[in-house]
Amino acid sequence: MKRLEWQAMSAEIAGSRAVTPFTETGDLPAGVHAVSIRELVAQLAVGTPQRKAVATRLERVQELATATGAVDRFFVFGSFVTAKPEPNDVDVFLLMNDSFDLGTVTGEARLLFDHAAAQAYFGASVFWLRRLSAFPSEQEAVAGSRAKERDAASSN
């Protein structure tokens, strides 16, 4: 599995990490690559207007998700984290802490947690779980959700 992650609640720790270079096939090397959102956008929102647009969506999703105060792990996968010049959307997997209650989330942030609404409103394919519900493990739950694209990159 190839995926990319940053720990949303510990951006300082991952803050200096750079995005791992792509392989010759345009993918990230297999495994999870911890990076900061700043580095991710700086290095991947380049080349085409579509890439910049998708990066803007990702930043908005990350901002709203983080504002809930309940995101333990934030994974990005799919075509945005490959060398594909025209990614369709951004794919995100959120592992929320076990006390997360969707009923406490209001406004735009609430839309993030409804898959169809997030797709329509943010142009993002969002999967999420409380950590206790990840099956058979957090690692495998995230890996199993990775992109529609069979060559997609994503997490740790």
């Binding site: 209650d101 947690f113 898959h115 999967f127 779980l129 409380r130 519900s133 099956f135």
Partner: peptide
Amino acid sequence: ARFQAQVAHLRNTESNPANYHAAASGFLAE
């Protein structure tokens, strides 16, 4: 099969119905 197993597990572990419906929506759509 993996997604179905995830949703089945979610159904048994998620005690909050609103959380369940929202979290399952992505997996069911996929």
